[in-house]
Design a protein around this nucleic acid. Sequence first.
DNA 1: CCATTAATTGGCA
DNA 2: TGCCAATTAATGG
Length: 222
Amino acid sequence: MSVLRAEGWLKDQHESVLRQIESRGRLRSYQAKTLVFLKGKSLTHYFFVVKGLVAVYRQNSEGKRWIASLIGEGTFFPHIGFDRPSAVYPANAETLTECTFLIVHRKDMVCLMREYPSLQEHLTQFLSEKNQELMTRCSDSLLESAAHRLAQLLKQLALQSEAQAEDGWYLISDTLTEENMADYIGVTQETVSRIMSRFYQGNKVKRVGRKKIYVNPEQLDR
DNA sequence: CCATTAATTGGCA
DNA sequence: TGCCAATTAATGG
C-alpha cells in the first residue's frame, strides 16, 4: 500500500493526504536512461519519485544538454502546469537510474490541491525554494568557476542523501556519472574529471570504485 | 572472461 | 576550457 512516505516534499503531510495521492496514481517502473516525457508535449501527468533519480533537461540541436533539475526520491516533477489545462512539459525528462514512479493525472493533481489546502501551501513554498535554487544556479554559472559549481552540486547531493555521515564525510552512491555532473554545471565531462582530480588531491572528495563518492562538505568550502 | 561504459590524460585550438 | 584521441579502469553479465 503506502509507497509514498512523508519525506522530502511530502514531509509534514498527513497520512490521509498521502493515501489520497496514492489512491489516484498508479505505480510504474522504468529502466535507467529511459525517456519519461518530451518538452512541448501535452502535460498529462505528474510523477512522484518513489525510487531512483531523474534528470529534467533541455537539449539543443547539436545534442548538447543542460540539466535544469535533478529529481530524487520524495519529490515530484514537473513543477508547473497546475493552473493551465493546456500546459505542456517545459523540458525533457529522463531516468538516470532505475526508477519507480507514482503517476498521477494532471486533473487529479489539481483536484488534490483543491481538496487539501495544506498541499497547496506546501507547493507554494516548494516552488519558491526551487525558484531561489534556480536563481542561484544561474548566477553561479555566470559569476563563479566551474570548480565552485561542481562543489555546490556535490554538497547538495551529500546533504540530500544525508544517510551515511561519518566524521564529516558523506557518501554519495550509485547516482550521477561525471557526464551527468557535467551536464548539470555546464561543462564537458573532461573538465569535470579534471576538477574531481583536484578535489581528490585536496582531500575534499574520495572515491571508491566508480560508484561510491565520499564528500567532505567542509573541506569543499575552502 | 569478455563486452560495454565510465573515467583519465595528453595534445592542441 | 573545449574537443579529439588514446588508454586505463570498473562494471555487469
